[in-house]
Design a binder for these strands. Structure first.
Lengths: 209, 209
DNA sequence: AATAAAATGTGAAAAAAATCACAAAAAATA
DNA sequence: TATTTTTTGTGATTTTTTTCACATTTTATT
């Protein structure tokens, strides 16, 4: 196993390779992947080295082989289902987003405590939060997205954990507390925007004159 | 200037402090901030040390002072306006999201090439992409969010750059190419979800038995 | 067949980030 | 007032990550 940023790079390589394959590319060089993933070619080769992926000196890598290798390392052999807890602006957007399908990811249901959100007949059904446990157990769901308001995040998380969910993408600023064996990725939209403001302001002060 | 992850930590400290202040806390220890931000207390003190923030041995830090210090370092003295390019699921969600306001961030307009999206009278007005330049120049906007489909990302980015935008949050998997002095933050929803799947699967194989 | 050119693969070096660990200061207590 | 306790502040150390640089392999060329 490797750390998060290394895995994120491998995922980016793989996604770039899938695009190259769709364009009928057969060979690819570490340089190309570096460009596509926004890193250096040495980094690409080092990553491959760590995972025992080898290419052909002077000949680069075979796109097909590389995709196979990365898919094996990244271990995504099948499609996965996610549920969304919190069917507000963000939750709804994720449920309707069609970019996940090509990555083999499906959002299969949404849950909310607000009865006006229920819609069991929708393309992606929305149920009461109290139905989450039953749904998750029955459908053996292991992954979820938290898109509730911050104050409700920890509670939503606990409902998910208790139902057997093992991996969560958290869109709230809350730092969720839970068992070690649950994987949590955080996306904090506020700090993303604030950090952009910071770096632009810094650039103004230093580079701008 | 410091690197991205350090700045992200400072932003998290600040947000935690704002919550403590709202609860009328006066003193805070590095331990508390560490918990709130998901790091160690040594990390907190080190960060502060780097930026010359000092507290009081044995007494911790004054919440108010700390907020003032961090605000000064992070340089966010006023509110900032963002525009959104691409008024699809994600774009719309961001335009309606009410969590930015408390951070002093306002989404002031949206732009799209699809005429059915136009809505100059909405709470957050939506205009044709061709109006972006005029709007951005007139309102001196410096920040934008890209929420278009991947194939349109680079073009949208160039329109923004040419209008004077200096900082961008990119929700597409595309690696945008542009001038050095434009700050780009990327959020790749697909790889976020895929990395969760990876780490859960790894945990299954190692810890699960 | 010999030579040149191009790209990998990887130890070694450098840089960056995180942690340690403890003296120093401040507050609390006796 | 002296002693103890607690928490900061930071140089030193360790760990992690990235970059360097070049021998090695493969392909192309003469």
């Amino acid at each position: 196993m490797r750390n998060r940023s290394c895995v994120m790079r491998l995922l980016r390589y793989k996604n770039a390779l899938l695009k190259l394959k769709a364009l009928n590319f057969v060979r690819v060089f570490s340089d190309n992947l570096a460009d596509a993933a926004g890193v250096t070619s040495a980094q690409v080769r080092k990553d491959f080295s760590i995972f025992g992926i080898t290419g052909n000196r002077r000949g680069g890598y075979q796109v097909g082989d590389l995709i196979e290798n990365l898919s094996h390392i990244l271990g995504k052999d099948k499609d996965y289902e996610f549920i969304v807890v919190g069917v507000g602006n963000i939750g709804k957007a994720l449920m309707r987003y069609d970019g996940f399908e090509k990555s083999g990811i499906k959002i299969s249901a949404g849950f909310d405590i607000d009865p006006t959100k229920y819609d069991p007949g929708a393309a992606v059904a929305v149920y009461d939060l109290s139905k989450l446990n039953e749904y998750v157990v029955k459908n053996k769901i292991r992954f979820g997205i938290i898109a509730v308001p911050e104050f409700a995040a920890q509670q939503a998380f606990e409902v998910m954990i208790n139902s057997g969910i093992k991996g969560v993408l958290n869109f709230t600023p809350a730092r969720l507390k839970g068992p070690e064996d649950c994987i949590i990725n955080n996306i904090n939209l506020e700090t993303e925007l604030e950090s952009i403001i910071y770096f632009v302001n810094v650039a103004d002060k230093t580079g701008g004159k």
